[in-house]
Design a binder for these strands. Sequence first.
DNA 1: AAAAAAT
Length: 499
Amino acid sequence: MSFFSDLGLAEPILRALEAKGYSDPTPIQQQAIPALLEGRDLLGIAQTGTGKTAAFALPSLHRLAANPIERKPASCRMLILSPTRELAAQIAENIEGYAKYLRISVACVFGGVPVGKQARRLVPGIDILVATPGRLLDLIDQRALTLSRTEIFVLDEADQMMDLGFIHALKRVANLLPKTRQSLFFSATMPKAIEDLGKQFIVNPVRVEVAPNSTTAERVEQFVTFVNQAEKQALLTLRIRTLLASKEMDRALVFTRTKHGADRVVRHLTSAGIEARAIHGNKSQAQRTAALEAFRQGSCPVLVATDIAARGIDVSGVSHVFNFELPNVPEQYVHRIGRTARAGADGIAMSFCAPDEKPYLKDIEKLTRLKIDAMPLPENFLSEASKLPAPSRKPEEEQRDARHDARAQRGNGGRGGNGQARGNGGQSHGGRAQGRDGRPRDVSPRQEQRDGERANDRGPVRTPLTDGTGGDKPRTFRPRGGGGAPGVGAHRNKVRRAS
DNA sequence: AAAAAAT
């Protein structure tokens, strides 16, 4: 059983595989395809890069093509749900390739782009629909789609889809599906609680497990460097610069904990002359698509991402994954480093661990049953770090944020929003710019600027990065709660939360 | 606590 041709798939499917150069099924495909051809439900546990998509797409294509019932308007015969737009697009693209020689139509719907074209595509009905949950329900509510004739339901990244933020939408979708259907759940990790929850949606599934629960991708070499949060940026810049210079690095994916953090890292790298782009949920869909495309094409060697890109995203030549911050859900670590060492290639994962992240590292090592080797800081770290330039600012974005804050503070005052753009620099709003307690609100200055001012107030600041030699960018290192104005930080948080 | 996902 080591060829696709032994698995009983229809000839046009085999031809498409041949055209792609695939002849041997991966282990998960060997196990899943026969069961799925029989119409069984399936719980698939497999690391990414093991051929998950083909494992469910090939037998489903076979079954759909073998039973060519009349296409009904505004319906789909097979529905695949994905947690991110990029992953949905990638799945659809792969399936289109496998369906090349079949009369099977494939569509993909997700948010962030106009809905009209997507809705029109569904009018005559579609065979295979790949979707993210929000837009799918939107189309259903618009009567552009019904799930009453769906024969096959696939949940990719099932554990994430059953997370709190998704479970509601998932339950709605599940309720709209016919009772008799084939259901497939796939996930790289499958914690027990999630598996139990999933059993509500599947019936007597075949369980296919390729790697033991939560084991780390094996060919990824993993390291951890213990470093203060304030020094991480310099460390990342220097590491990437060295790896690029020595041609050891093809593409690097850098994960941050927050969307803001991703933008910050990009600014630092860019100002150090390293081309980098960010992808996260606050970017427009156009920006997200462009960033991923530039990364894929190779015109941009560094992609900085939130966990939006942790799962499934398949880009060849990702030689390095950096965890700028450690994920606090250990499973997420396995997903992240699975972006490298794909399809037989090697990969290196370098994690930065600040003192307060050590518990997360423990969790990760426990889950992967692996002790991650420590990699020391470069010998010349301090002196090299002090030579790095200050990051560039992003004025438009700052202004937009500031305006947004101000508007939120004023309440929804119709279209008064452009007042601030003209002239008086915002200060004249003082009368209204007050917190709820009536005290004047600190509207404009950014935290970095405050840091700078404070540094000047205090005279020379000894920092871990500059050796106290006073580089062009003083990096202040302020112990929490120490020094003056402890209320400022909390106040700022309050303001930001109001937006 | 953060991120993702509809407008």
